[in-house]
Computed example of a mutant assay.
Amino acid sequence: MEERKSHQLLRKRGDHNASVSYSELLFDLIYVFAVTQLSHYLLYHLNFLGVIQTTILWFGVWLVWQHTTWVTNWFNPDTRPIRLILFGVMLVSLLMAASLPKAFEDRGLIFAICYIAIQVGRTLVILFLLGNNHHLTPNFKRILGWSCISAFLWILGAFNDGYIRVLLWAMAVLLDYVSPMFGFYLPFLGRSDSGKEWTIDGHHLVERCQLFVIIAFGETILMTGLSLSEVEVWTAERIIAALVSFVGSLSMWWIYFDVSSEAAIHKIRHSVNPGLLGLKYHAVHVILVGAIIVCAVGDELVGSEPSSTVTYTSLYVLIFGPVIYLLTNMVFKWITSHTISVSHSIAILVLLLFIPVCFFISILIINSIVVTVFVCIAIFEILTPHMKKEELLEKL
């Protein structure tokens, strides 16, 4: 117990919330680039295979960011060793993000090596800094073990192509995504105890996820602005498309940040097992942020050709992206406040029933109706009495 308190690299746990450091904000800039790369990849590969490939790459990008976030939650990023780790991960992440557009072509090995170098290398350095007798050492040994298992699949996939690479990388992502849910269990090394070993700071974890959500919303606004700037003639239809997309981004932001983020901070801070709750929180956010990226691609489609008709693949980004976003928001609210959002449920039902009509109208009208649904949810949140929010936090 004494070593827990005395290790010089660990964050000091106390009454004050751990704040996000400037080095972490700088680190996130790499992932702004990665999100842009992924949204463009999906835009130019808008078919079933492209959706699967983008999903695999997105989970890989998120898992690198997530594991690094947990490291900077445990360890103080203002100390020189941890800051150097962060900058090293940044450099390799930049190469990984640059390889994304051709990760399923001739740069697959580069992507895989970068991913493995980050996941395995970061853990090895942490183990070296901790030594053998620290209470977190067994946890990081298990993480290293699972990172090595998934590394085999990443490398094997890189030396194959086509559907074989997709299958192997999907298995690797699934291993990295699911293994924390079982405490990184390994024979002879046992299982990590989330209540004792994952002693995270709830405020820091929530704030890091919120910052990534803002990155994703920034991409939706960026895509809207780019599609408008690249058009030679600004017709009324294209300007309306840009305005609709902008309003949609604002309403989606409101739905996420109005109450749920406050409840999440309160819930993790007062949880008897913040590590387990933080794990669930991250597991939801990878899907939630992915849905925002999908919606950004939908905005780009509408901005470039607002009068075009819908296809089955464009229907995915225009309708199912928003549906996934609302579903994950519902799960998020259930995890943080044990409430089921009636407005979200009704909105999902409306969007699903609206699908047959989509094939007879333009994508601008489709997007306008989807955004109207989001605005209605946001208005409902605004009209919710303020006391209800306070009572919700008190209930937690």
Rank of each mutant, 00 (worst) to 15 (best):
D176H: 02
V173N: 06
F159L: 13
A158Y: 05
G157V: 05
P180F: 01
G157R: 11
D176V: 02
W169M: 05
L167Y: 13
F188W: 08
A158C: 01
I164F: 05
G157T: 08
P187H: 05
A172M: 11
R165C: 08
L189C: 04
G157W: 08
F182S: 07
D161L: 05
M181C: 13
P180S: 10
G162L: 06
D176Q: 15
V173W: 00
D176Y: 01
S179K: 07
G157N: 08
A172S: 14
Y163N: 15
G162R: 04
F182W: 06
F159D: 04
V173I: 07
F184H: 14
A170I: 04
Y177M: 09
W169R: 02
D176F: 00
R165P: 05
R165Y: 09
G157L: 03
G162Y: 03
Y185A: 12
D161C: 00
A158M: 02
S179C: 14
Y185V: 12
L186G: 07
G183I: 03
L167C: 10
L175W: 07
L189T: 03
S179D: 12
P180Y: 01
N160G: 02
M171E: 07
P187K: 04
L189Q: 08
F184S: 13
R165T: 10
L168N: 07
W169L: 08
L156G: 12
V178G: 01
N160S: 14
W169I: 04
F159V: 12
F188N: 10
L168T: 11
R165W: 11
G183W: 10
F159G: 05
A170T: 15
D176N: 12
M171I: 15
V173H: 00
V173K: 00
F184I: 08
A170D: 10
L189P: 06
Y177I: 06
L156M: 11
V173P: 03
A172E: 14
A172F: 09
P180I: 10
L156P: 03
S179F: 13
F188Y: 10
M181P: 01
P180V: 12
V166Y: 01
L156Q: 06
G183E: 02
L174M: 15
F159E: 06
R165G: 06
F184A: 11
L175T: 04
P180K: 05
V173L: 00
D161Y: 08
A170L: 14
N160D: 07
F182G: 14
L174R: 08
F188T: 13
I164T: 14
F188L: 10
L174W: 14
A172V: 14
V178F: 11
S179R: 05
G157M: 05
A172K: 13
D176G: 03
A158T: 03
D176L: 04
D161E: 12
M181H: 13
V178D: 04
V166G: 00
Y185P: 04
L186S: 09
Y177A: 11
A170H: 07
Y185G: 10
Y177S: 02
D161S: 13
G157K: 10
L189G: 02
F184G: 08
G183D: 01
A158D: 01
L175K: 01
G183H: 09
V178T: 12
N160M: 09
L189I: 10
V173Y: 02
A158P: 02
V166A: 01
G183R: 12
P187M: 09
P187Q: 06
F188S: 09
L167E: 04
G162D: 01
M181Y: 13
M181N: 13
P187V: 09
Y185E: 10
V166C: 02
